[in-house]
Design a protein around this nucleic acid. Structure first.
Lengths: 162, 162
DNA sequence: TATGAAAAATACTCTAT
DNA sequence: ATAGAGTATTTTTCATA
């Protein structure tokens, strides 16, 4: 499963446009891609069914929601066994401050992206949500000065047309 | 700027629903929130204008796009001066493998989330896109085993109703 | 500021090529 | 697989409370 899907230039064009604005109408998509609106609908439906499109998410500004401070927490869980790790991840995911949890290779097992109100809030979160737990061996906190999203996600090595 | 916005329970309910599925119709939103569809439209438009809602993004499956391997690259840029750092960030953002770039506190200045086809592709990216550059002093690569998105982003300390 | 109904635009279905 | 016409929904506007 999770096999790579073959995408033609029309699919790629649609995905590029929709990653920029997922609410672009099929008529506008059709105009920009150069096919009929019904074809766009058909392609997008197929991409959804193929699992390429997972969903439509709202992008919010954490600062406007009173979460102006973001940080990455590197967490070492010891011992690193399934019985401890499963509940740990679920507990961290359930914290309202958590945005994303990564399970990584290397000495720091988990990286948790969090959004908090201010430094006092971050301190409270690290102490109460992380270091106070017996399975958490070490937490390293790095603040996020700034964050940039990059270009659209596309397949590697775009078909060179010679 | 980036001041926190006052959100009432209707706004919060709408944001929770839309974070789950950003294509929920105003009619469905109205049914679930208990206000008229036109009110939902009005609220959402206002949240957009207030900068709370930044956009509607398509969530894609990197594996289905032939990018089954993801990694986090910790990058030290030396010397850490504006003249070097600005172009560095722009160059990294322009790489098709890059997903997000973080500027962080701590010894590793930047963290770059990348999606590649396989290990050979990652090696090529690290060598050609990072370590070959004179401003890049050090790169540490950590692979992502798994990644979990967390609950909806909401304001801190939801109004306790005693 | 919220509403409900009218108007405009869009999504979606279906048939033919 | 694509397009075009037709139907059902939805979005959006607007007068009113």
């Amino acid at each position: 499963m999770a096999d790579s899907v073959v995408l033609d230039p029309v699919d790629l064009h649609l995905l590029r446009l929709l990653q920029n604005d997922a609410r672009t109408t099929y008529r506008d998509l059709a105009d920009q891609v150069g096919v009929a609106p019904s074809t766009c609908l058909d392609r997008v439906t197929r991409l959804r069914r193929a699992g390429v499109i997972l969903g439509h998410r709202l992008e919010l500004d954490p600062a406007r929601l009173g979460r102006g401070l973001q940080a990455l927490l590197s967490v070492q869980v010891r011992p690193h066994r399934r019985e401890l790790v499963g509940p740990f991840v679920e507990r961290i995911r359930a914290l309202p401050e958590s945005r994303t949890v990564f399970h990584l290779t290397g000495p720091d097992d988990y990286l948790v992206h969090v959004a908090v109100a201010d430094m006092a809030d971050l301190q409270r979160l690290v102490l109460d949500g992380f270091t106070s737990r017996p399975e958490v061996a070490r937490v390293e906190t790095r603040l996020i000065f700034q964050q940039w999203d990059c270009g659209p996600l596309l397949p590697p090595s775009p078909p060179a047309t010679p």
